[in-house]
Structures are given as structure tokens and as C-alpha cells.
Amino acid sequence: MRQVVLIAATFVAPPAMAQEAEPDGPDIVVIAGKPLRVDAKLLRAAQRRFAEDRPSYAPQGTLRFELWRGADRISAAGVGLALTDGAGRQLPVTIDADGRVAFATLPAGRWFLTAPAQSQGMRLRPIVLSSGTSVEDRRLGDLRAQCRVAVSMAKADASLLAMPLIGMFDAIGGCASKRFGFYHMVEHPLASATATGAGVTRTLRLSAKRTSYEAPLSDRTLSNEARVRLAYR
């Protein structure tokens, strides 16, 4: 039986059969009816990890953050996001044309990503995309970098009880381990997902509800330039 890491959900899950795996939420969860308040230390952890890994995995990549409700991605444009400190000062948040959040240099000190209370819960997730790619046609290197960014955020937000599980994850190879499955959420039900490299094509495993796919992060026959392509139903 394999372990399953739900990287789109940014946490390490307990043992489960891969065909039953379904990402159902990250550590960064906003409960319905409560304001969003994400400590900027998580965003800084993501930026540091991405800056370290970008030359190797995603030299043309950018790091953004997405908001999700259930299996639906929502635009951050209408949520009222801001960076707020303990003194009540606010800074605007940059949102790109696709409704994703972009950060340049985060201000020093104790800041939070905030938004007014929502009628429905939300989730915050990182995404790495290179220029000339899309969620339907991605570089495998971008997915590898995204996994490492997500794990860094989980570590920054982990409780003491979660640290042994995260330590085990690191000990067996982390995102490069063959003993874990890495599932990534998509916005529409999938018909298929494939990974294609130099003379190599892999048909990727889909989750039970076809709302996520298992990316071949540990497959050494596929370089970072291999492409993961999706077809929707």
C-alpha cells in the first residue's frame, strides 16, 4: 500500500489506496463565516523555497497563489484581499489577469494576508507556471517545484503533532520519493492525463472523481522539460 501526499492540498495524508485518493483541503483553510487571516511567514516560506529551486526546476516559472472552494477555483479579484499588520495598516495585493495572487517583496515584520468573512470556506494553494504553459499543458519541472513550495508552507504552518509525519516524509526523499503519490487538483473533470518526455509517454492515474491526477514527480526517465497534458471530459 502506498502513501499518498496531496500536494495540491499542501499536506501529508495518512495511508490510502491511490485510486481512492481525493484532495480535500490544504492546511490553509478558511472556515465559512470567518475572515481570511494567513500569516505572511507561510508566504515567505513559499517564496524562499521557490527562489532556491527555480534555477533547477522552473527557470522561467513564476509563483502565484490560488483560492479554491471545494473543486472550484475562484478569482481572488472579488474577495477583498489585503496585507494587514498588527497596527491595522493595509497594503494592496496584486492579482493577475487569471485571478491569481502575486507577491513581490513582502514587507518586513508581522503581516497577514486578510479578507472579509466569506459565506463559504476557501483554500489557499500555490501554483508554479512557466511562460508559454498552462494548467492543461505544464512542465514537469514546474510541478516538482510546486510540490516543494507546498511542503515548505505546510512545514511553516505545522503543529508539533504533525512534525513527525513531515520528518518521515523528508527522510524517505520528500517530493522525489517513489513511495508517495502526488495528486494535483484541476478545475474540470478529467478524461485523461499524460506525461510526455524524450521518447517516453506515461498515462497518469486519476483520482476516483477525476478531479485530480497523480504527477510523476519521481520518474527519473522524465526530465523537468517533460510536459503533463490534460484532456477534460
Rank of each mutant, 00 (worst) to 15 (best):
L206N: 00
T211K: 10
R125I: 14
R220Q: 14
P92M: 09
V12N: 00
A9M: 08
V30N: 02
D157C: 05
S131T: 05
V200C: 03
D53Y: 05
R48G: 03
F11R: 12
K41Y: 00
R73A: 14
T203H: 12
I127R: 15
V200Q: 11
A195D: 07
R205H: 08
S192H: 07
P14V: 10
T84K: 14
D96V: 14
Y57T: 02
A18G: 09
G109V: 01
L113I: 13
C175H: 00
D170P: 01
L190R: 01
T105W: 04
A13F: 01
L217E: 10
D27N: 09
G88Q: 04
A104M: 07
I7E: 09
M122Y: 07
T84W: 00
A104P: 00
P55L: 09
S75R: 08
L113D: 01
M1F: 06
D137N: 13
F180N: 05
A108R: 09
I172T: 14
T221V: 06
D53G: 11
L67W: 03
R89C: 09
G174I: 04
L143F: 13
I74F: 07
A195K: 02
W111T: 04
Y213H: 02
P126A: 12
L113T: 10
P23C: 08
L6H: 13
F103H: 06
V38Y: 00
V30L: 06
D219P: 05
V128W: 13
K155E: 15
P116N: 09
S56M: 11
I95Q: 03
V79T: 15
S159T: 15
D27R: 08
A193Q: 07
R54G: 11
A40G: 04
Q120Y: 12
A115Q: 02
L106W: 13
L81W: 02
T114G: 05
I166G: 02
G25T: 05
Y213P: 00
Q3A: 15
R100P: 03
S192N: 12
A171M: 05
W68A: 11
K209F: 12
A115C: 05
A8R: 04
I166Q: 01
V79G: 06
Q19E: 13
G78M: 10
R139D: 14
D27V: 10
G78Y: 07
T94M: 07
L143S: 04
T201W: 02
L42H: 06
Q146W: 09
A13G: 06
R69N: 15
T196L: 02
V30H: 01
G70C: 11
R227P: 00
R44E: 01
R138V: 09
Q118F: 08
